[in-house]
Amino acid sequence: MNYWCDIGVNLLSEQFAADRQQVLDRAVASGVNQLVLIGSDIAESQQNLQFCQQQYLNLELVTTAGIHPHYSAQVTADWLQQLELLIKESKVVAIGECGLDFNRDFSPRPQQQDVFAQQLQLAVQYKKVVYLHERDAFTRQIAMLKQHNIQQGVAHCFTGNVQQLRAYLDLGLYIGITGWLCDDKRGSELQQAIAYIPDDRLLLETDAPYLLPKTIQPKPKSRRNEPAYLHYVAEKVAQLKQYSLTEVAQLSWQNSQQLFGFKSRQDHV
């Protein structure tokens, strides 16, 4: 049986409120043994941390902690101090989801850049992984990453082209691939870029409950994505890279251990 780490789950989403434990049970049954929960603001990051501190059989939970660009305008005066406390916790493995989003502009761009810059400074200070979001802001985001000499992180839910992929790889970052890859229309550029992702930089994620892979047949009635569907993303990666599913499982597992520092589980490799 293959073992998987889903490096991007919005587990405390309201969409999981009614059956969160069952979602975890289905994840384990499908071979997903590790989940990285995504923190989008201080409150969610704190809730994620509390959730991760519970014990689950055959399942390891960790979380990111940070401010998503959508919420940059809503930070409190002491948000940076609160984030600094969070990232000292062993279950917090990355700073983020952080970055820039010039598509929806839910927060003013200057505020997005200021909050992002402070999180990057914190990442450098504490030698923490950065968990990156970017939409329609690639040039500015890359410039800020270079400015802060960021070399440890992941482009979460990467949907870009080969040129953008290479820019992230040149910084030494990992690439998070979601069900976006399974959409032949919307994901066509990403499908072309997959061949250029080195074996030691590939990570898999569902971004559940979002980005349900279009390759799932029949579609779940809920139309909701969950960690148990991670293997559909892996199957598409295997098809495009002409690897076996086991090879994709081993590579993505090893890379997740390397980046996020999970406790050693050599029996799964």
Score class of each variant (00 low, 15 high):
R223F: 11
Q22F: 00
H148N: 05
T76Y: 05
T246S: 13
F260T: 01
E134D: 15
V115Y: 02
D170Q: 13
Q112I: 07
L83A: 05
I87H: 03
F102W: 07
S45G: 10
I177Y: 06
S30P: 00
P227E: 04
V248E: 06
R223D: 10
P218S: 04
H268A: 11
A65G: 07
I175C: 00
G172D: 02
K214P: 08
E134V: 13
Q147D: 14
G99Q: 08
T63E: 03
D25K: 15
I194S: 08
I38K: 13
Q111H: 10
G176R: 05
T206S: 09
K127N: 13
L132V: 12
D25W: 02
Q266C: 05
V32E: 00
E134R: 12
N255R: 01
D267C: 11
A117L: 09
V129P: 08
V28F: 04
V237H: 04
Y126G: 11
L122F: 10
V154K: 00
D19W: 12
A123Y: 12
K185N: 13
D207L: 03
A155T: 07
S45F: 05
A94E: 04
L173E: 01
N225A: 05
G176I: 07
Q151R: 14
D41W: 09
C157E: 07
Q46L: 12
T215Y: 13
L59M: 11
L190E: 02
F51W: 11
G172F: 03
K214L: 14
I216L: 02
F51P: 01
R166C: 06
Q191D: 02
L165E: 00
Q119V: 06
I67M: 10
L169F: 08
K219L: 15
L145Y: 06
A94C: 08
D41A: 06
S188P: 01
Y131S: 05
C182W: 00
L100M: 06
L211H: 02
Y126V: 14
D105S: 12
T215N: 06
G39M: 00
I95A: 01
V154Q: 02
W253E: 04
S107A: 09
N149V: 09
V28N: 00
Q242T: 12
E189D: 15
R223E: 12
A17Y: 07
D105A: 08
S45N: 02
R265M: 14
V9I: 13
L100A: 09
S13T: 01
S90I: 09
L59F: 11
A208W: 09
N225W: 10
Y232R: 06
V93W: 08
L83K: 01
Q121Y: 08
K241N: 02
L120R: 01
A167F: 11
L37A: 12
E60P: 10
Y210P: 03
A27S: 03
Q15T: 09
I194K: 05
E235W: 10
A94H: 06
T215A: 14
L165Y: 05
Q250L: 15
E44K: 12
A18R: 07
Q254Y: 07
K185W: 10
A73S: 15
S244L: 09
K241F: 10
Q254V: 14
C52A: 13
N33Q: 15
A43I: 15
D183N: 13
A228R: 04
E14Q: 10
R26T: 03
N103Y: 13
V75W: 04
Q46F: 10
Q192G: 07
I194C: 04
A234H: 09
R20Q: 07
V115E: 00
Y71T: 14
S252W: 11
G153R: 04
G187E: 05
